[in-house]
Design a protein around this nucleic acid. Sequence first.
DNA 1: GTTTGTTACGATTTACGTAAGAATT
DNA 2: AATTCTTACGTAAATCGTAACAAAC
Lengths: 293, 293
Amino acid sequence: MTKHFLTERNLKSLRIFCAAAEAGGFSAAERTLALSKASISRHIRDVEEVLGVKLCERGPGGFRLTVSGIAALKQAQIALDALSRIKLEVDEVKGLLSGVIRIGMTEHIINKQYDLPGILRQYAQLAPDVTTDVRVMTFAQINHALRERTIDIAIRGRYEQDHLFHFFPLFEERQRLFVLEGINPQGLPLIYRPHPFVYELLATGHHPKGPSASGLEAVACLIASGCYVGILPETYAAEVWDYGRLVPVQTQDCYVNIVSAIIEKNRPPSAAVELFLQLLQQHSCLTPSSSKR
Amino acid sequence: MTKHFLTERNLKSLRIFCAAAEAGGFSAAERTLALSKASISRHIRDVEEVLGVKLCERGPGGFRLTVSGIAALKQAQIALDALSRIKLEVDEVKGLLSGVIRIGMTEHIINKQYDLPGILRQYAQLAPDVTTDVRVMTFAQINHALRERTIDIAIRGRYEQDHLFHFFPLFEERQRLFVLEGINPQGLPLIYRPHPFVYELLATGHHPKGPSASGLEAVACLIASGCYVGILPETYAAEVWDYGRLVPVQTQDCYVNIVSAIIEKNRPPSAAVELFLQLLQQHSCLTPSSSKR
DNA sequence: GTTTGTTACGATTTACGTAAGAATT
DNA sequence: AATTCTTACGTAAATCGTAACAAAC
């Protein structure tokens, strides 16, 4: 009994055997393989030893495959073909998953219930050849950028129906009206920022329009001054607790919206975008498709 | 740019990559592969270099395949599977084409129009694991051996219909009544041997029954004595010309029969017999299936 | 004599393990 | 501190080509 299994070392010998069979002899294969007859002879002898059969008759009288040799040749070609296909397959995946993915998002997407940094890390690991470009933008900038296609995918709250976009719900965000602790919010000016909830509250007339603020931190600063009320995400207000005692105005309802991944409807998503979308949805707390891996 | 193609050396690395992916890390694969981490690391680095992609993220943080890695893993498993199947395939063929093939034949099957030695040589090359057993037998012995299954296949002339046997025509053999040159054959005793043509001629009563002979050479000797007539194949009579002037008796018709390969009908032929039969028929001058190789 | 494949031997190449280093948990 | 992977280096093994040999045409 010799060795029982073929290894990749034997595959080399099999490749040489295939070449010899196609060339019709060792001397002819010598040129195509750029290998000495001695080596070819050894290789074929090794395979025959492992397989326990004679693969071919050879000698000055000519070259002829045995029945076993024909079977071995056929199977070896399948293996070699599969081997050569690996690179093609990988190249295809590599080609699809390369380039740039441009992500636009509003502030404060990062929070404890949705691990966007973790998703980005996972994405970078899964598709290391894709350059990821992430930028924080305002609500209006995001819509413009999506239409202009200067970003590929957006992450923001969904407030309106828009037939131009596809929405993929990710998690729920709750915003409330906040005021400095101990201050009576009644009639205080509302800090203005371009956001649907601000518009909505101003429309009620309960609060006059106050100073404009750009960015959640600016809003928080102005609220903490005690002169204004402002709308903030609950989780963000909790985070900036240390800077001042921001408390929700109890008389006011909670604004709930669904933070979603958004792509333009008329634009077929690239493989890179599709993979990112898939990861985002896998981590979603809303869809039932929240499986692991 | 690095190397463009995967070779069998890389397949070894791919097998190690597969094992690492299944084990879920290098340290775990270390045991299953009986290989040091250092080697595993090198192997996977090499494959990544050839493929130009990162196959997996690894580190103290854990092990995770990239999308390219998943594709590579899948294809590599196909190649490895094909490789492992080679031995199974060859073993099957080897198992079928081994053992003994027992061939019974009459005298003088070898002649210029049918190259039986060449067929036997080709058979030995195609199926080197089959032990070939060839024996010359008389007509009666062949029939008996076929029925008793002490031979697997016979080669002899076909004179009768026999529902117990399958006949595969190979070539035409012509036999005639011969006499020594210058001798009047009329009324001379016919050399007896157990053969249908002898029985047939004796039944006509033109010649009395002469001495018994065993073997064509014995018949030729007796004819050359000038005292008898005898039936011989034309080609054989031509070969022994030098031993004496044997000439055909012109008044007598030529006996024609079809030399055939014969197997017992109720016995399914083994793969070894089937292959031999196939070779015999390939060289046949009678059937239209006489193609090359 | 020429062609074809096999075996022997020395030189190069390759691969492995040990051990030390770097990075993460 | 413990784990996981990577890199460096010396040693062991496999592979190749040259060359001598045997066999068939």
